[in-house]
Design a protein around this nucleic acid. Structure first.
Ligand code: NAD
Ligand code: NAD
Lengths: 253, 253
DNA sequence: ATGTCTTTGTGAACGCGTGCACAAAGATAG
DNA sequence: CTATCTTTGTGCACGCGTTCACAAAGACAT
């Protein structure tokens, strides 16, 4: 088992804070909408409202990219769209491979907004031999055996994992070995990757649990002193187990 | 149009930091796996590795919940599973409604891990009349017209939005009006909600763009001085400006 | 009971992100 | 050209989150 980094070391890329990078797509989306309405310029206040952020934060974010605004006027929409697109690397084409074409993988493959910004679904890969050749979203599913070649041939550097949790680490290792350096992981698994590989995870279950936490707090504020059930002192509280298992799948021994 | 909060004011719930809350599900998942292997106790070091975090961070996180560890030994797995579950509100049942049963909505409805931790898909709602009555994942899809009643009848407080972006705000407003106070939004839209309503967003496009940014950086490190294409210098000189009339496009009127 | 050894719980320092508040910059009018 | 007005760009302070490092706490052996 590879002793890889689990956490990316807060790269602080070229002076642009990570938090800012995460907001750039938000600005870009709002700006694109303005562009489509042929709005020539926009103030930081207006744009901030559209993006749902503080205007000072937005100005500071833009200041990391350079001084693209005009005082007294605002920002030129088209110019800013171009600059942010370039900064995010959206002016070039990014071939993406999706591994695990089940419910979620198929939905992603069918997703139109996927390809709208330079991201192109270059390959669909699944371990099920029965799926090989079957077209999903107009693309024939290919078998895992050829993963290495598929990644190389298409120059894929971004991989999307939508396999069951138990297979995620293995798939991840193979993707990385084949040359993938960025992974978007939908499986509820902590992935270990070598230095230099970025992993971002999308975890529906975690999101819901965070919501539930706050939800419980809201409900508990009124009925303050609520009796708690007896905490099991060293007992088995009938742990409910999911059908999916939700296996973290990290560390075998 | 309601002037709702877009940002939750960093509630700082009962002294537990938001960052800690976001990690609790991660710990819970690792602990559940240990529990299924009948591992009785675990040290902060081991658990931290399994969850992919720093051990000091984990201990500090747990310290917010109370002193549940034993020095020299570690943490009792079962007990900790129970405590975290209770803290997250997972000991109770959370009926969830999914609105917009398309590619993504159907995938979510079919997702088993959804129901594995107290979250129960109570209703599927869509605006398409043709879908009304059609069973998806064993549940009949209901029409948007009955949204209000469906939410009330099932006591739904958590709503999931998987409609097209244009419909998201409207659906959100109706959900909130019906009593929903937590929303998980998959549509690429900035939602406005009144105070007291939590919104979390899952945005695939943003994740990919963040990956692309770092990917570009990695690639550009070697081929440093790359010539940029001609940036479009100021398209329209802008005669007419909409100071307040031009709405930023994200929120449909 | 005493000593040793392991691991927790936390004080303290540090760095990052956020938001205020304002001076500088430029547009626009007279 | 000068005055006024708008909006950017940023210095600064503050709070949150992270991490180090270690004393205290308990288990376990003798
Ligand atoms: N469906 C959802 O809404 C949803 C939501 C959140 C998270 N997830 C997670 O996403 C993942 C996929 O979910 P799903 O509902 O699509 O599951 P699924 O069972 O429908 O699809 C999984 C697919 O992966 C393929 N697969 C299995 N092992 C593989 C391997 N080693 N290499 C390549 N392909 C392999 C299977 O053949 C199958 O087609 C799971 O980890 C799940 O926990 C799903
Ligand atoms: N499919 C994906 O993988 C994916 C990924 C990321 C984001 N998204 C986003 O998720 C959303 C849904 O994506 P999708 O691919 O499932 O789209 P889809 O078109 O397949 O499904 C949308 C569904 O919403 C229903 N709908 C439309 N207006 C409605 C309304 N007012 N009330 C209730 N239902 C309504 C439609 O009838 C349809 O069934 C979109 O906003 C999309 O941008 C999808």
């Amino acid at each position: 088992m590879a002793t890889g980094r689990t956490h990316r070391p807060a790269t602080r890329s070229r002076g642009i804070p990570e938090a800012t990078v995460a907001r750039l797509p938000l600005y870009l989306r709002a700006l694109t909408a303005l562009s489509e309405r042929s709005v020539p310029t926009v103030s930081s206040e207006e744009l901030a409202t559209a993006a749902g952020v503080n205007s000072a934060k937005l100005r500071k974010d833009f200041s990391y990219l350079g001084s693209y605004g005009t005082r007294g006027v605002g920002y030129d929409v088209e110019y800013l769209v171009y600059q942010i697109s370039r900064e995010l690397g959206l002016t070039q084409d990014w071939p993406v491979a999706i591994v695990g074409i089940g419910n979620l993988g198929a939905a992603l493959a069918n997703y139109g907004g996927f390809a709208s910004r330079g991201f192109r679904v270059a390959a669909l890969i699944d371990a099920d031999p029965a799926m090989a050749g079957t077209p999903v979203a107009g693309i024939a599913v290919q078998h895992t055996d050829d993963l290495d070649r598929i990644i190389s041939d298409n120059g894929v550097s971004i991989g999307v994992i939508t396999t069951p949790p138990g297979a995620a680490q293995q798939v991840c290792d193979r993707l990385v070995a084949a040359g993938v350096t960025s992974i978007l992981n939908f499986a509820p698994t902590v992935l270990s990757v070598p230095e230099g590989v970025d992993v971002r995870k999308v975890d529906l279950s975690i999101e819901l649990q965070i919501l539930a936490f706050h939800e419980q707090r809201k409900a508990g504020e009124d009925s303050a002193a609520e009796d708690e059930g007896a905490p099991p002192m060293r007992a088995t509280p009938a742990s409910r187990k999911g059908p999916d298992g939700d296996m973290p799948a990290v560390m075998p021994a």
